[in-house]
Every structure is written in structure tokens, then in C-alpha cells.
Design a binder for these strands. Structure first.
Lengths: 204, 204
DNA sequence: CGTATGCTCAAACGATCGTTTGAATCATAC
DNA sequence: GTATGATTCAAACGATCGTTTGAGCATACG
């Protein structure tokens, strides 16, 4: 709405775009603040350090995204039962909405970079703050797929997670033609992702 | 075999381990050469630049890996027909062998980092040098799955690729107990990956 | 022996990094 | 109007970056 976002938001937006393109180490605070049109010292003033800025980039998106996911999961039942595909929809649909809204596609690329990091404090931060979401969905999958052993289930969930992150980080390069057909195309994409994930999770 | 590998190989090995842990930008040549026990200037002497070193880390592994994949694909036919699962085995089995041999698991993590890079010269380098492998396998998948439209097929291949890279980059943290059961466990893992990929590719 | 050639080394190059400082500017409340 | 706190600013901090240099050392060949 506001034509001139706050310095804080300008930094977060520029950070998201630059982290997506160059990575966390590849993007410097000077490139970042220049792109945002703010002073170099503003990052440390508003966020404390570059590392805290990285965490805030994730927090800004993941708080809402995972809240949406858990809300969608909680709303299942009754006329909209908690089938495998509906649970997957609760996980995938909010992410798709984000990936097609504003700079959300760039954030998906940032998220894919985070998944490539196996050590470091970022992995710990994400696990500490958002691990409960995956745990809740995993419990639901375990209930829906009782014939799978626990290692086998986690194994398949891991594969599905990798597939979804990889696919959604590729969004934002293909552009829409008109708004109506884009809406339809997005819904079609969601269905494809859900069916792929369902097949991978539940195959004999 | 040689107890004292050449300076060139020491650099490549240390680079692989450090790129896996810290990323291409996060790993400095000073950390790298210190870990390898060689002089700082040796990198630019043997490889020309840091960027060329990165490319050589990939070349050393991917040349053999993709040759193995294409050889396995070419050997299909007759008593070992080119079914979907056999083609997938030709793609997956050489990668699994690499991921469980020496520092191959570290290379898988490096490869996962490369997949997270959407711009940059590294992506171009990998596409130029190894794109033909994916193209050949894609043609085989198209032949085996004629009911899928071309976009739909590439879409599913992309999802499978993301799943495999993500899963295999996680290897190397769980350790084997004894060698015999490890061999069996690896074969079991290969079968799981193949069945997951086959289900994702061929689901109705 | 003399001298190429291949390789290693300590040292330094200029550039850029994240972070800090202290003054200048802005907004708000008394 | 002026005091107070929040924010922005140019400038500099020391550290570290990738790369280059030129001397030193080895082995091989005439």
C-alpha cells in the first residue's frame, strides 16, 4: 500500500532478492544496501548483524507460511476429510500461494539454498523455529500410511520435501500470459504436485 | 594407493570437503589450502583461479559418474530390458556407488549446492558439459511414458531430480555398522529410490 | 657442468568484507 | 522552542578476500 516502505522492509526485500541470486555469502551488505537505496550502516542498526538479517528474511515469510499450513491442516475433517491428498494440499497450497505472490518466488530460491546447508546456525535456526510444523505433518502422514515403517515413512517424506523445494525454487522464471489462465495454471500445478507427492508417499 | 597424493589432488579433495560444508563463497582459499597442507598460491598455479577449481571439482566426479550412467543405459536390452525401473537404476545406481565411496558423499552435498544456484557461470558450465546425459535419459523416459505430454514429463523428471539430489546429499551422516549389512542396506536404499521415482514418474 | 623446466614458498598486492563510530538529521512531546 | 529519542549518514576500523610476484628448490636433459 505505502509507496515508500520503511527502511527495514526495503532491506528485507533487497536481501531476499540478492540472497536468491548470489547466496548468503555471495551477497555483500554493500550490494544489498545499494539495491535497497539505504545506508550501509542501516543493516546493523535494524538487525544487529548480517546473520540476524538472514534469519529475519526467513522469519518474515515462514511465520505466515507455516501458520497457514497448520491452519489448513486443522480445518480438515467432516465434509473435507483428512485424506492423504488433502493433507498434502494443506502443506503445498500455502507455499504455492506464496511462490506466486510478489517476491515469494525469490524467497523459494532462498529457501532452497537453506536446504543445501547441512551445517551452520541457519539450519539450527530453521529446525528450532519451524521443526514442529514438519513434525505435525509427519504424524498425520504416519496415521494415513500405517503400513509403512517409521524409517521408510521419513525416508519418503524427505524425498517429497526435496522434490517440492527443488520444483518451487524454479518458479518465477516462467511468466504468466493473462491473469485468468495463470490462476488456472497455478491450480493445475498444485494438483500435479499433490498427485506426485501422493504417489511417492503411498506407492506399494 | 599412493600414500602422498599430488598437490593437485590434495587441493581437489580439500575443496570438495570445504565446499560441501561452507559453500563456494563461504570457503576461502586460505582455509582450503591450509586443510590440504599446501601453499596458498598452489591453487592459482594448478587451476588458474578459484572458479576454475570449482569446475574441476565437478569435472573430476561427473565425468566418471555420467559415463557410468550412459554405459548402464546403453547396456539395457535383451534379457535386461529397458523398463522404467531399469532405466532409473541406470541413473541412480552409479550415483549411489559414488555416494558411498570415499568422499563421494561430500561431493553429493556440493552437487546439491550447485542445484540451488539458478544464475551464475556454474549452472552454465554444468548444463554445457553434462546436459546431454539428462537429455538422453529424458528421451528414454519419453519413450517409456508415451501417455504423458512433454511439459508434464519434464515436470515430473524435475521433481524426481530434486528428490534424488536432496536425498543423496543427506548421505554420509548415518554410518555403517558392518560391511556386509551396509552392502545390503545400500542395495535396499537403491530399490527404495527406484520405486519412489518410478511411482512419481508413472502415476496416473 | 650448465641450464632449462616444473613446482613450492613467503610475502605482498589492491579490493572488498562485516562492523563500528560519532556527528547530522528527523520526528515527536513537553 | 527546545529537549529527547529514533534514525540516517559519511567515514573509517581491522580483517580477510582472490590473486600476483619473484625468489628458491628440485629433477631432467643437453
Amino acid at each position: 500500500m505505502n509507496a515508500t516502505p520503511s527502511t527495514r522492509d526495503r532491506i528485507l526485500g533487497a536481501a531476499e532478492a540478492l540472497f536468491a541470486r548470489r547466496g548468503f555469502d555471495g551477497a555483500s551488505l554493500r550490494q544489498l544496501t545499494a539495491a535497497a537505496g539505504v545506508n550501509l550502516a542501516a543493516v546493523n542498526y535494524h538487525f544487529g548483524s548480517k546473520e540476524k538479517l538472514v534469519e529475519e528474511v526467513f522469519r518474515r515469510r515462514l511465520d505466515a507460511l507455516n501458520a497457514d499450513r497448520l491452519a489448513a491442516l486443522a480445518q480438515l475433517g467432516g465434509s473435507h476429510p483428512a485424506t492423504l491428498e488433502n493433507v498434502l494440499a494443506a502443506y503445498i497450497r500455502p507455499a504455492m500461494a506464496l511462490a506466486h505472490d510478489g517476491n515469494g518466488a525469490l524467497f523459494m530460491r532462498v529457501l532452497a539454498r537453506a536446504f543445501a546447508e547441512h551445517d551452520g546456525t541457519l539450519r539450527q535456526f530453521l529446525s528450532d523455529n519451524y521443526g514442529h510444523v514438519m513434525r505435525q505433518f509427519s504424524a498425520e502422514f504416519a496415521r494415513l500410511l500405517p503400513h509403512l515403517s517409521k524409517p521408510e515413512l521419513y525416508w519418503r517424506i524427505d524425498l517429497v520435501t526435496g522434490a517440492l523445494i527443488h520444483a518451487m525454487s524454479g518458479f518465477g522464471m516462467i511468466q504468466r500470459k493473462d491473469d485468468v489462465s495463470e490462476q488456472a495454471h497455478r491450480e493445475q500445478t498444485v494438483q500435479h504436485l499433490i498427485r506426485f507427492a501422493a504417489a511417492g508417499l503411498s506407492h506399494p
